[in-house]
Amino acid sequence: MPSENSRIKILPKAVVCEESNLRGDITFSSGCVVHPSATVIADAGPIIIGENCIIEEYATIAHRLEPGAVWDVNNILSIGTHNVFEVGCQVEAARIGDKNVFESKCFVGRAVTISSGCVVGAGIRIHTSQLLPENTIVYGEQGLQREAIDKQGSQTLQIDFLRKVLPNYHHLRKPNYDPKKARSVV
């Protein structure tokens, strides 16, 4: 069985703080930024996080086992590109598309599929099985839903800033996987 750290693949240009809590088979694609105290748990199967995602402090992404189930290499949680997981959110969604924002302290249960361009508002809790259509905003105390008027903006400036600043204040995990070479560079 490979060691826990060898199951964590960090592609070049990803910034992953050592103080993050990572468990299981996780792949961070190029451009991802993982803050200290962020948590990613791959108990049910691998998690593949697409390019340029931001996972902020105390955010949790979990791919948890259903009762009675076992870890399965084919049970992959695929997270698209350019997603933002804000401070204290907890996301266990079945699938996540591109350019979504999970605002502070929101919760998304495992029976939820998030398409692309969605915003789950601060403090919103989604437990029921559903597919959020593209460009859906979930907001308010009752978790109301509406279609976004504008598309989600790019997080490029924030990612560039974080890639410059985080190494000044935190130890980083080194990139250890290059898909061009298709082997670990540990």
Score class of each variant (00 low, 15 high):
Gln155Leu: 09
Trp71Ala: 12
Ser29Val: 00
Gln142Asn: 14
Cys53Lys: 02
Asn135His: 12
Pro67Ser: 09
His63Asp: 08
Cys106Lys: 07
Ser104Cys: 15
Leu77Gly: 07
His127Val: 11
Ile54Ala: 03
Cys17Met: 01
Gly31Thr: 05
Ile61Phe: 07
Ser30Thr: 13
Thr27Trp: 00
Ile61Thr: 08
Gly24Asp: 00
Thr39Phe: 00
Asp43Phe: 09
Gln142Pro: 04
Ile79Arg: 00
Asn135Phe: 13
Gly80Asp: 10
Gly24Met: 01
Thr128Lys: 14
Gly97Val: 11
His82Val: 03
Val101Ile: 15
Ala59Ile: 04
His63Lys: 11
Thr27Asp: 01
Asp98Ser: 12
Ser6Asp: 11
Phe102Arg: 04
Lys164His: 14
Val119Leu: 11
Val33Trp: 09
Ile47Phe: 14
Ile124Trp: 00
Asn5Phe: 07
Ile48Thr: 08
Ile149Lys: 11
Gln152Gly: 10
Lys164Gly: 06
Arg110Val: 04
Arg23Phe: 15
Arg183Ala: 13
Lys181Arg: 10
Ser129Asn: 09
Ser6Ala: 10
Glu51His: 13
Ile47Lys: 07
Asn83Ala: 08
Leu132Pro: 03
Ser20Ala: 15
Ser154Ala: 06
Val73Glu: 15
Ile96Asn: 05
Thr136His: 05
Asn75His: 13
Val70Lys: 15
Thr39Val: 08
Ile124Leu: 03
Phe85His: 02
Lys174Val: 14
Lys181Ala: 12
